[in-house]
C-alpha cells in the first residue's frame, strides 16, 4: 500500500473516532435523564444495558455469517440444493428493510410470550438477539460470498495443481486476497446493525408503553445511532475503495 493511501485512511479513521466519541459523550449525557425512570420502580433493565450488548452480539452474528459463507462457497458445489436454498433465502432477507424486521420481531418473538405471561423483559432481550442475527447474518453471508468469489478461479486451480490441500489454498491464497472484501462486508453489516439498534430501541419503546409512557430521550437516541451507522458506512466505503 502506498503512503498517500495510508495517510488518507488514518485521517478517515481519526475523524471517525473523534466524531464517534463526541456522539458517545452525547449518549452518555442523555443517559441520566431517562435512565432513572424504568429502574426506579422495578427490576427492568434499562435500554442502555442492552446497548452495551450490541457489539458482542453483532460480532457473533458476523462471525456466524462469515463461517456460513465459507461453508457455502468452499464446501458445497454451486448445484447443491441446500446451497441454492440458502442463497435464495439470503437474497430475500437482505432485501427486507429493517423496519419490517422490527415489526416481525415484535409480532413473532415478543407478542406471544409477552401477551401470555406478562414477564416479558427476558423475552424482549432474546427477541433482540434473534432479530440481530437474522438481520446481520444474511448481509454478511452475501458480501463474504462475493469477496470469496472475486478470487479468480485460475489462482485456486494453479494452487491446487501444485498439490496444495483445500485448507492450504484457503489460508495461503484465498483469504489474504478476499480479506479486504470480507472486512468491508463486515463493516457494512455492522453499520446496518447500528441502524437496527435504533430499531431495537423501538422494540423497547413498544415494551415501555405497556407500563410507562415513551421517554423523551429515546427519540434522540434513534438519531444518534443512525448517525453512527452513517459513519460506519462511510468507513466501509473507504475500505471498499481499495480493490485487490
Amino acid at each position: 500500500m502506498d503512503k498517500s493511501k495510508i495517510v488518507f485512511h488514518s485521517i478517515a479513521l481519526i475523524t471517525l473516532v473523534v466524531v464517534f466519541l463526541f456522539f458517545w459523550y452525547l449518549i452518555e449525557n442523555t443517559h441520566t435523564e431517562i435512565g432513572q425512570q424504568p429502574t426506579a420502580n422495578s427490576q427492568q433493565p434499562t435500554a442502555d444495558s442492552h446497548l452495551y450488548l450490541l457489539l458482542p452480539i453483532s460480532l457473533l452474528a458476523i462471525l456466524l455469517g462469515v463461517a456460513c459463507a465459507f461453508y457455502l462457497e468452499e464446501r458445497l458445489p454451486p448445484t447443491n440444493w441446500f446451497r441454492r436454498l440458502i442463497e435464495s433465502e439470503v437474497a430475500i432477507f437482505t432485501g427486507i428493510p429493517s423496519l419490517l424486521y422490527g415489526l416481525l420481531a415484535v409480532e413473532i418473538f415478543v407478542s406471544y410470550t409477552l401477551g401470555s405471561s406478562g414477564q416479558g423483559w427476558g423475552v424482549l432481550f432474546y427477541a433482540e438477539v434473534l432479530t440481530f442475527i437474522v438481520l446481520v447474518m444474511p448481509l454478511t453471508i452475501r458480501t463474504t460470498q462475493a469477496a470469496l468469489r472475486s478470487v479468480a478461479t485460475p489462482i485456486r486451480e494453479s494452487a491446487y495443481a501444485l498439490g496444495a490441500s483445500q485448507w492450504q489454498v484457503l489460508s495461503n491464497q484465498v483469504v489474504p486476497l478476499a480479506f479486504p472484501g470480507i472486512l468491508a462486508g463486515c463493516c457494512r453489516a455492522m453499520s446496518r446493525a447500528l441502524a437496527a439498534a435504533a430499531l431495537l430501541m423501538g422494540i423497547h419503546t413498544w415494551g415501555y408503553t405497556h407500563e410507562t409512557a415513551i421517554s423523551a430521550g429515546i427519540h434522540s437516541r434513534y438519531v444518534l445511532l443512525l448517525v453512527a451507522a452513517l459513519l460506519f458506512s462511510t468507513f466501509f466505503s473507504f475500505l471498499k475503495e481499495n480493490p485487490t
Binding site: A152, P154, S158, A161, S165, T244
Partner: peptide, 20 residues
C-alpha cells in the same frame, strides 16, 4: 489426490502469479 498432483507439474496458459 494431492500426492498425484505433486507428481504432475502444470503450467496454465495465462500466467497466474499467486499473491505471494
Amino acid at each position: 489426490v494431492y500426492g498425484l498432483r505433486r507428481k504432475i507439474g502444470m503450467v496454465l496458459p495465462l500466467p497466474v502469479g499467486l499473491p505471494l
